[in-house]
Structures are given as C-alpha cells and as structure tokens.
Write a protein that binds this DNA or RNA. Structure first.
Lengths: 213, 213
DNA sequence: GTCTATAATGAGATAGAC
DNA sequence: GTCTATCTCATTATAGAC
C-alpha cells in the first residue's frame, strides 16, 4: 500500500483502482462473494492477480469498497424526494428514478441483492449509518403528507419496500424475466407504465383503505 | 448409490435423504451455492461428510434436487388461481397465499432468489418446462378477465412480477427489513394489509389507466 | 451403511526477481 | 509497480477399514 509520506495516488493508480473495481463489480454481481475468484477479477481487469493485491488488501477489501461506493449512488433517488413538492408527483417520480437506475445499473442492483440476501454480513454497518436515517426521514415526510390529507391513508414503510421490490426486481430477477417474456427487446417501458398505474392507483385512492372482504 | 436389482429405498434411507436436504436448504439459502460447504451441511445434518456423499452424488446433486422439489411447492399458489372465480378476489387471494408462503418458507424463497440472481445456471430447464407454461396460462386468464371487462386494463405479466417481487421481498431482504423496522415483532400483518390495499386499488381502478402527467 | 484418513483440486495470499 | 513462481489452506471427493 503506497501511503508513506505524501499520499497522493497517481493518475495511473486511480485508473487501475477503477479498472479493478469495475471488473470486480462484474464478477461479484454475477457469482456472489464466495462464487467470485481473484483469478476471474484479474482476468476481467486485464491485470495479474498479485497486481490486484497491490492495490487492495484482499478480496474482502475490494468487496467492501464496492458496497460502500454503491450505497451513496443507490440512495440518491430517495434523497431527491422533496418534502415541499406535490406528494403524488414526488412519489411517482421517485418510482421512475428508481426503475431507471435499476435498468442502467443492474450489476449494482444484483451486488446489493446478493449481499442482503446473505444477511448483509459486510454492509450491515452502512445500513444502520446511511440507509436507516434516510429511510426514517422520508417515511416521516410521507406520513406527514398522509396526516395533512394530501395522500390517502397508507403505510410509508411498506410503500417504500414495495417500490424497492418492484423496481429492483427487473434487475435482480432478470434471468427469470427473460425466460418468461421471451426475447422481447426491453421490458422497461411496459414495466414503467405498469408501475405508474399501480402506485398511481394506490396514491389516488379516495380514502380509508376498505377491507377487501 | 443403492440401485442394483430392487430399487426400494428403506425407511432409514428416505429419512436420511430428508435430513440431508433440510440441512442443505438451511446452508444453501444462507450462504448461496458456492458459499455453502459439505462440511456445514454434514454438521447441520448430524452426519459425516462421506455419508452425505453416499446418498447424493455430490454438492451439485443436492442443490439441483432441492431446487426441483421446491419448484412444485413454489408454484402451488399460482396453480390455485381459478379462471372461474371472481377475478378481483382470485388475484387478491393469490397475493395472500404468496405472502403467507414466503413468510412460512423464507429459506426456500432465498434459495430460489440466490439461484435466479446468479443467472439460474442450474434451474433454467425447470423454468422453461414448469414455470413458463403456467405463467403463460395464467396471464391468458387474467388477460381474458380484462377483455371481458371484469378488470380494468392492466398488464398481466407485469402484474404477476409485481406480486412476486413484493411478497418475496420480505423473505429475500429480511436482513434489510430488520434494520429498517427495528426489532418489531412481525411485519407480516402490516405487509399483508398494505399489499391488499395496493393491489386492491389497482384492480378497482375504474378504467383506462390515466397518464400521470 | 457409516466411519477415519487422505488424495486432488482450487483459490487467497506472499516472496522475490525485474 | 508489475510479474512469475510458490506457499498454504479450505474444500470436494475417494479409498478402505469396520
């Protein structure tokens, strides 16, 4: 690790770190943490295995670095949810942003899903420090909208869960969707229309979620 | 492999196979395919490693067996969707059944999610032979309901995706939900209420999914 | 049928030359 | 900074005794 007196990473160093991280994202998202090997990452990056270990302390270091960087990007769409905007519009726009992001960054989505699925062993601290506060804050915003009568009664926490689940589904379960939809070019437009209709219906509901029975 | 002249597995053999499969489900669903080791499975099953390999040809054999058995159970709730029933009721009951199943069989949900997430390398044939035909059949049923005016216009394929995504989310992303909801006893009742409200709103929508802008 | 011991492979990490 | 060669350990699978 090059960090003796002056800790200024050269342009080559910065570039190599990026190349390695991009290769690692490709491999980790496809095979999971344990399924990925340094050989695969090295091959994908076009570097030798020891060279990889010159830039990172080990396999886990690479993985944690990826997850940490990802977290910020991943939360951007939710950060942008504006408490002063029109409630219905804000939430539907958030759904759009989230779906777009899953479509553009499917590897990141799968990397995250892999980690959570296995109990978040390496990203748990970030969940508490970054995700939880933001989640609570935005849930309070939505709850405020409901109390102000700007939205029908609904459960902010589970609404956000549903948004996450449905938007990330297209990245995380892509293999299944490809089998079921056939070689259809791109499911995204129809997915976007469906999700707008679904969440739009929920948010437009007059009032009092009538029991179904 | 005991299959020379008479292929009748003894009661002990049947029992041991079940014990091994249950242990394997526990381990595979927690660590993924590559993350799981025969040592862990053997320890969980209370058997020796060579004994495991007496009953199964290898690690992959165990995994494939699990996935194949799971597929049938997993599709039961959808099979039960009745073309002759009340459309809205049928779909909402399906959501309930799916959520209940994910709550009762979270390990199975995660095993399946792990496999799909990594591109369904081992279960792809079953997706084509079992899931696809059923999916097409039930989509046609729902499409028929829409054409008959019994349901508002909606996209059957993406409706099913949304149902799968939201119900399985609670099992697959349990680690995240636990962080965000705190040590709350059981999210299931509120999740069920939310999903009934959401899908109920979509299905009750008068007609013509109005563009949101 | 089940075990102990061990072979064979694969993968993370390091030594040391260049 | 980067490479070749190597070490070490974990893991799948087998051999052979009981």
């Amino acid at each position: 690790m090059p960090d003796s007196p002056a800790k200024k990473p050269s342009r080559i160093q910065q570039r190599n770190r990026r190349v390695i991280l991009d290769a690692a994202l490709e491999v980790f998202s496809k095979h999971g943490y344990r399924g990925a090997t340094l050989d695969q990452i090295a091959a994908e990056a076009g570097l030798s295995k020891p060279n990889i270990l010159y830039y990172f302390e080990g396999k886990e270091d690479i993985h944690v670095t990826l997850l940490s960087q990802l977290m910020d990007t991943w939360l951007d769409p939710l950060v942008a949810l504006d408490p002063d905007g029109d409630p219905r519009r804000e939430i539907l726009d958030y759904v759009d942003r989230k779906l777009t992001m899953a479509g553009e960054l499917p590897r990141e989505s799968r990397l995250f899903a892999n980690e959570i699925l296995q109990g978040a062993p390496r990203i748990s601290p970030e969940l508490h420090s970054h995700l939880k506060p933001l989640f609570d804050e935005k849930c309070a915003v939505i709850a405020g909208w409901v109390e102000a009568g700007k939205l029908p009664p609904l459960d902010p926490q589970h609404l956000l869960f549903s948004i996450w689940a449905t938007t990330q589904h297209y990245a995380d379960f892509e293999a299944q969707a490809q089998v079921l939809l056939g070689a259809e070019t791109n499911p995204q437009p129809r997915a976007a229309a469906h999700l707008r209709a679904m969440f739009g219906a929920l948010l437009a509901q007059p009032s009092g979620a009538a029991s179904v029975h």
